[in-house]
Design a protein around this nucleic acid. Structure first.
Lengths: 131, 131
DNA sequence: CGAACTCTAACGTGGCGTTATAGTCA
DNA sequence: GTGACTATAACGCCACGTTAGAGTTC
């Protein structure tokens, strides 16, 4: 498929997808004779994973590392020495996800505090205008 | 107080605080004879509110509007016609905070899905290496 | 006086959005 | 061949980080 269909499927802009290629995050399988980028279903899933990770605050480089580990863990053949190191990496990734998750929960509380602040201000206004 | 103490108290960089002044978000009360920025406790609280809002995804301009509304709602004298409009603004702000909050909850779920993905990959590795 | 602090100015970065111009596909 | 799609290139934006060099405070 070409870039247009890909972007429709994952709801990202063409600019974004091209930029991901520029930084080596999502590289097309090949090019058409005229130079059009050609993508497969694998690229769709990869972009969807990226979309999931993005709001957690990972940089594109971070996401590349995670995707790389996942790809290698999903490969059919892997040498035993690679497996050990890979498991360590996955563990590290999982830990940083946990940290991001904790940060998100703090942000939820911040949102609630802000809501309370806004409500209090509105309440104060109501009292004043009731006079 | 000078910018150093201010930044210590709110845990923001001097560059950040100066940039906030550049865009009109946090303007110092005055300057020393030699040109040093002078801040008060009000600036501390203002910056802390900003720190709370930032991770919710508001732009500096958005935050300026919210802070402006809060300041006006906290003022001692307000004309009745101003109060009505102000209450509307506060309502709008509260709604966008609610939207951000909902987005945060979706991101929490995304984090959990990602954790599951990473765990599954690690599990797969364990099985393979156990052979 | 001197150490610690602060000033402005300017360039760099990440993650794209937004034209502009030209070439490709079915 | 024609209308829709795609290519590269380049500049713009936000929210700062990071020097560099000179001035201020106590």
């Amino acid at each position: 498929m070409h870039i247009g269909e890909l972007c429709d499927r994952v709801a990202l802009s063409q600019r974004t997808v091209r930029y991901y290629e520029e930084v080596g995050l999502v590289v097309p399988e090949s090019r058409s004779k005229g130079g059009f980028r050609i993508y497969s279903r694998r690229h769709v899933t990869r972009l969807l994973v990226i979309k999931q990770m993005k709001p957690l605050g990972f940089s594109l480089e971070d996401m590349g590392a995670v995707l790389d580990s996942l790809d290698r863990a999903g490969a059919d053949e892997l040498r035993p020495e690679e497996a050990g190191e890979l498991r360590q990496r996955l563990q590290l990734h999982a830990e940083s996800v946990a940290e991001r998750r904790a940060a998100l929960e703090e942000q939820l509380e911040a949102a609630d505090r802000l809501t309370a602040t806004l409500d209090a201000a509105a309440e104060r206004l109501s009292c004043l205008t009731a006079l």
